[in-house]
Amino acid sequence: MHKNILEVQDLKKYFPLSGKQVKAVDGVSFSLEEGTTLGIVGESGSGKSTIARLILKLIEPTSGKVDFLGESLYDLPQKELRTLRSNMQMIFQNPYLSLFPHLSIGDNIEQPFIINRLGNDSVRREKVLELMDLVGVSKDYYHAFPHELSGGQQQRVGIARALALNPKLIICDEPVSSLDVSIQAQILNLLEKLQKDRNLSYIFIAHNLAVVEHISKKVAVMYLGKFVECADTAELYNNPLHPYTKALLEAVPSLEADGGKAFEAIYGEIPSPLNPPKGCRFCTRCKYAKPECLSVEPEYREVNPGHFVACHLV
């Protein structure tokens, strides 16, 4: 049985703007089992990347709690926090922008060893070559620069660098969204293999439900700073309950002749987090909204074992 490597409780991040508050993340709670993947899906502006930065403590929370490996992340002294954070790494959306353009591929991957003062030059070089082989980047690229590699190769370099310190948790912030579909599959397969071989835990952020389906054990759907639905992957895909989840599934291409089960698409844009709807945050785009949805915020509750949803219609 898996144990929880990460526990997030009532996490909030509000940004002050023009005398108001932008509620980027507004009371999110979840746990992540060791060696598994939690997919977090939603449109741009829903707060997914803010959650990632809060977990890594790249930004300070407004309130809430994050426990990692049994330690309260926000209560640790700086020295202990530095040690703990070596077990948490991130893979970014744009592989080229995440690399140092003036450093060679070998030097890019070597940076975590240098920053943490690990090994001498020869030991670090050996480790870098091992990591390059692990992620499928030829050693011939050791002295090449990032602009000389394809997008897929650049992302493999980013993955190698994330693996350098043998982390237990990797946050993947839309790591394949900028890549061609065929390359996306290769990177996803690589991440799955690394997870199996190294017992890695992932938080996989995406805006496309199709991308997270096969890599995630559990999927959370996020809208305007809140989770609106969360369940085991098979349960979520076979029995979606929230209209927003159904609409996201509608957007997933299907190879079936009839296009699969028909769901209504959503229209319009996500409201501003500076002025969210008073009731259900999805009510302005939901064709099923009733008066209660416009005035009362739905409770995020467990409706089936392990299946949580925030919707008055359920």
Results as ranks from 00 to 15, higher is better:
234 A>R: 15
211 V>E: 00
192 E>W: 13
213 E>S: 04
248 L>H: 03
149 L>G: 11
190 L>C: 09
217 K>E: 11
218 K>L: 10
211 V>F: 01
182 S>I: 11
211 V>P: 00
141 Y>L: 10
176 V>R: 03
249 L>S: 07
168 K>N: 15
165 L>R: 10
177 S>V: 04
230 C>G: 05
163 L>V: 08
221 V>R: 02
113 F>A: 14
121 D>K: 15
129 L>H: 01
222 M>Y: 08
150 S>L: 14
240 P>A: 07
165 L>G: 09
118 L>N: 11
196 K>M: 02
157 V>N: 03
120 N>F: 04
236 L>H: 06
138 S>E: 09
207 H>M: 05
138 S>F: 02
227 F>P: 00
152 G>R: 12
115 I>G: 05
201 S>M: 09
189 N>K: 15
147 H>S: 13
198 R>T: 05
181 V>Q: 12
141 Y>M: 10
121 D>F: 09
130 E>Q: 10
149 L>I: 06
191 L>I: 11
158 G>D: 06
218 K>R: 15
210 A>Q: 01
251 A>Y: 09
199 N>Q: 13
192 E>A: 15
226 K>G: 02
197 D>T: 06
243 P>G: 10
251 A>K: 08
197 D>C: 09
251 A>E: 06
135 V>H: 01
247 A>F: 11
124 R>M: 05
137 V>Q: 08
219 V>W: 00
222 M>S: 03
153 Q>W: 14
241 L>V: 13
162 A>D: 06
175 P>A: 06
205 I>F: 04
170 I>Q: 11
206 A>G: 02
126 E>M: 05
176 V>E: 01
131 L>N: 04
178 S>M: 14
202 Y>P: 04
174 E>G: 11
170 I>V: 15
196 K>L: 06
145 F>E: 02
211 V>R: 00
159 I>M: 09
128 V>W: 01
174 E>T: 08
208 N>Y: 05
204 F>P: 05
228 V>E: 02
171 I>A: 07
227 F>Q: 00
231 A>H: 01
202 Y>A: 03
169 L>T: 12
203 I>H: 04
114 I>T: 10
214 H>I: 01
151 G>C: 14
144 A>W: 06
241 L>A: 07
187 I>C: 11
171 I>S: 03
192 E>Q: 15
132 M>F: 04
122 S>C: 09
193 K>E: 11
206 A>W: 00
182 S>R: 14
215 I>N: 04
209 L>G: 04
231 A>D: 00
201 S>C: 11
218 K>D: 11
240 P>W: 03
209 L>T: 04
218 K>T: 13
201 S>Q: 07
243 P>M: 10
250 E>A: 14
145 F>L: 05
149 L>C: 11
150 S>M: 13
145 F>V: 03
183 I>N: 08
163 L>K: 07
243 P>Y: 08
154 Q>A: 08
199 N>H: 14
